[in-house]
Nucleic acid binder design. Structure first.
Lengths: 343, 343
DNA sequence: TTGTAAGCGTTATCAA
DNA sequence: TTGATAACGCTTACAA
């Protein structure tokens, strides 16, 4: 049906292998035949069949992207659109293609990955998250399949190429910023505990407190995994302590919006009697009321660097393991005020 | 290197074709050999090579997803995460796989599509947008390649299977809601004019006004394509009219957040002296301050139905052209108040 | 019920 | 500089 390399060969009076070489722009073909063949390809409307090419060359020019539970509401987190944007830009430049996992549960995702790898559908994989005890990581390592991870590996960091922020510093910087404003009662509201990013930001938070001789109070530390409804309860408890925090460090923008809503309902005014600083600096940090002071982690670059380094690895298997740290910075907006207020 | 169908065949003492049939669970193979072969597959850790299978069977079990300019900030619009979530769920159930376009410009996207189609990388395509004069649509139709469109086709609607909301009604309903609250000076803030969705919602807005004998004022109609900075200027002009609107219909949630921010800066209080209703009911409609009254268009279902119907078409080429309308509904929150206020 | 063998559309190895 | 031809790993007539 579709015109193949053979049709072109026949029409151009050359062998299929010659046509193949013209496609690859091999230097071993005379300019003359190249021209001739190209003309015919044009005339016949020839377009190479990628599947056939993949089979023959044992490479798909496709990267697999692994999402954490796409069925989950957390998929709505703009973090993913933004990394994907970075990744898109990266692959587009390099003429690679993207394939996604679609699993909802941990097992489905694992299967998606196995299918990608064993089915030889992709040349390499990018993991968009890093968590404790991830079967996917174990599998990939055991298969020695090329992948890069966005985030900090749970273990064996020196053996896994990854692109990450220095989230410990980021957590520390955010906390120090609040301390600098005079706050001493600072609450921490984190996402899923099993995610490395949450753990690191929490570690940074603690570090900053310790450095400033402020005792760490466990009751100031909350994990708001249930974004909307569930989260509210936790915040309420936090703000109903006899000594409630005067400032909050929230590890994720989407959560920060939820927190904002809850504390408003509780009668707080941000930033007048409660300061909030969040992470990621997604588009709507700027659009929130009040606009959120946020730690920009350059999500786009996270994605961009991930592809770059994965492709580097694919093109040169000897490429060393790397750790790429994307810088972060505080974007000051209107959600933080000087402490310490009494109320 | 990897274990192939031949290895399994040899080890099981059968022909490769038999193994192939076992994989396909063909009824023409005895339970006995099936069992035997399956055991061997297990032992050898056999996994079919999808690329080879695709080449032989001329089908990839992969769907191509076409985004509008992923390089653009509008990609950050939660609409896309949410359709993607619906699509993911759909393909996962049916064991299809997803491949994305990564182009930034119209031409790059067009090329992405051509590569998917001519390169035989995908069996069908889902377009996540619908706009005026889209080369991609023309190409797909001319190639008679299976695709479904999310939104309303610019032309020949009876000839293109599409999944859409009744956006004219939706626009009308939103406007009627505001009229019902007593507003008569209602502004329309739409996105890109070339998008069918914008056009339809605008049409609905006009319809509602006409039905209520309210004259349409062109100066009340704005198109805020530049989301953040650019948009502000348009809103300012709108609100600085001698008779500014008392209510706003904003065709997109992300834009609504921007509008909210701008009118706040202008000294308005939503909803006390300005009402806002928006569309899409994305996660943060609920999280905005104030929570936005929004027209829920069931984005998830839009994606889900799109896959369903595309796969139907792939499995049965005679499947008729269809138009699927996903219902919408108004979710009342806190961004609208009774009109008409004077100020 | 199973086997043989010819594709599927490329790439890549050897010769020429 | 080019051409034959054998892979690549599977599916699918057609035979047996």
């Amino acid at each position: 049906m579709a015109v193949t390399i053979k049709d072109v060969a026949k029409a151009a009076n050359v062998a299929p292998s010659t046509v193949s070489r013209v496609i690859a722009d091999s230097p071993r073909i005379s300019e003359n035949t190249k021209r001739k063949v190209r003309t015919i390809m044009e005339e016949l409307g020839y377009h190479p069949n990628f599947i056939a090419r993949s089979l023959a060359s044992q490479s798909t020019q496709t990267l697999g992207i692994v999402f954490p539970n796409s069925g989950n509401i957390s998929f709505q987190n703009p973090f993913f659109s933004e990394v994907l944007r970075g990744i898109s830009e990266g692959v587009n430049d390099k003429h690679y293609t993207l394939q996604l996992t679609s699993g909802k549960t941990e097992d489905e995702i694992y299967n998606d990955v196995v299918n990608m790898v064993q089915g030889r559908r992709v040349d390499g994989i990018i993991l968009l998250y890093s968590k404790k005890d991830d079967k996917v990581v174990d599998y990939l390592r055991q298969k020695k399949f090329p992948f890069v991870l966005i985030g900090k590996p749970y273990e064996d960091q020196e053996q896994i190429t990854h692109v990450d922020n220095d989230n410990i510093s980021a957590g520390r910087d955010g906390t120090k910023y609040l301390l600098g404003l005079g706050h001493e009662r600072i609450g921490f509201i984190g996402g899923n505990k099993n995610l490395m990013v949450t753990a690191d930001r929490l570690a940074g938070y603690k570090k900053a407190l310790i450095e400033n001789q402020i005792p760490i109070k466990e009751e100031y530390i909350t994990h708001d995994e249930f974004l909307l409804e569930g989260g509210q309860q936790a915040i309420k408890e936090l703000m109903h302590l006899s000594q409630p925090p005067t400032a909050l460090l929230v590890t994720d923008e989407l959560m920060a919006l939820g927190v904002l809503k809850t504390v408003h309902a509780l009668g707080y005014n941000v930033p007048d009697n409660l300061s909030i600083i969040s992470f990621n600096n997604a588009l709507f940090a700027e659009l929130a009321t009040p606009p959120l002071t946020s730690i920009d982690i350059n999500i786009f670059d996270l994605g961009m660097e991930a592809v770059k380094n994965l492709i580097l690895k694919l093109e040169n298997p000897k490429e060393p393991i790397k750790r790429i740290i994307i810088p972060h910075s505080i974007i000051v907006r209107k959600s933080c005020e000087r402490g310490s207020h009494n109320y």
